[in-house]
Design a binder for these strands. Sequence first.
DNA 1: TAAAATTAGATTGTACACAACTTAATTGGC
DNA 2: GCCAATTAAGTTGTGTACAATCTAATTTTA
Lengths: 148, 148
Amino acid sequence: MMKHKDDLILSHQACFPLYALSREITTIYRPLLDALHITYPQYLVLMVLWENEGQTVNQIGERLRLDSGTLTPLLKRMELKKMITRKRKESDERSVEIHLSPSGKALKKEAAKVPAQMVEALGISDEEVNQLKRIANKILDKIKDRGN
Amino acid sequence: MMKHKDDLILSHQACFPLYALSREITTIYRPLLDALHITYPQYLVLMVLWENEGQTVNQIGERLRLDSGTLTPLLKRMELKKMITRKRKESDERSVEIHLSPSGKALKKEAAKVPAQMVEALGISDEEVNQLKRIANKILDKIKDRGN
DNA sequence: TAAAATTAGATTGTACACAACTTAATTGGC
DNA sequence: GCCAATTAAGTTGTGTACAATCTAATTTTA
């Protein structure tokens, strides 16, 4: 029989460390990404596009689990910085295709050193990184499989 | 010798699942906390105060790793909702003490069922929750011990 | 002890997040 | 073929986050 008397103690919470760590990691990314004039969510969008050019807003959103309310203004800022172009699809005018500009493509080379810099800056072992990645993905998959 | 050729692939990243999971969890919290008319960060502030009444903005911020730029407006919203009061400290007028109002204290009873509801809603095993908590805290501690 | 340094909050400005809603294009039934 | 339902983005409004800066109070130190 479990007791729930002390459930509302911060240090007993599991979700708070996750929330705090997620923010800490963004803070560690910041100086590395500042050098490329991008934010962390913009970096994620670029990674999605480097992997597969010309995806629609929806496709990017599914990958990153972000909706148009977040993506539309974010993509507009990236367009202003000449990293991407936004164009209505010919075959379906509802969709907007996001294409990398030459400078957006070129950014990939500059970003190539970011992952290694992060491992260095985080100062944690590969083992720990992999554990975290594995369990986070496991839980994410479970959440994804039911509702969405 | 490690290869870094594929480091910029989203599915190889460790930080993205963390970022995505953190947001998913907030989404799962939302309906539970909506019933109490609070947001997740406000819930965290309340937990800090339920544990120890009358802390200053700084003390709350250290606990939650949030600065006054985030906390001041958040606390003002909580004050508007009559959950807390904000009062300059007599002994040091720079500091602001945050006190729970009667309804802020009463909220604790209503929130008592939230942790169990979360475990239920998350639908993951205690084992997984604990693993995640343990490793996130381990990494957080490492980050805390150096930088600040 | 008076000026300099530090500290605590507040403010400003930018950038996410996300719910709720709107608009326009497409699709599915009939 | 037409209309209802669906879909994709965009818009609106609220609430974080956080860097940078400001202001006022307190400490330090010369």
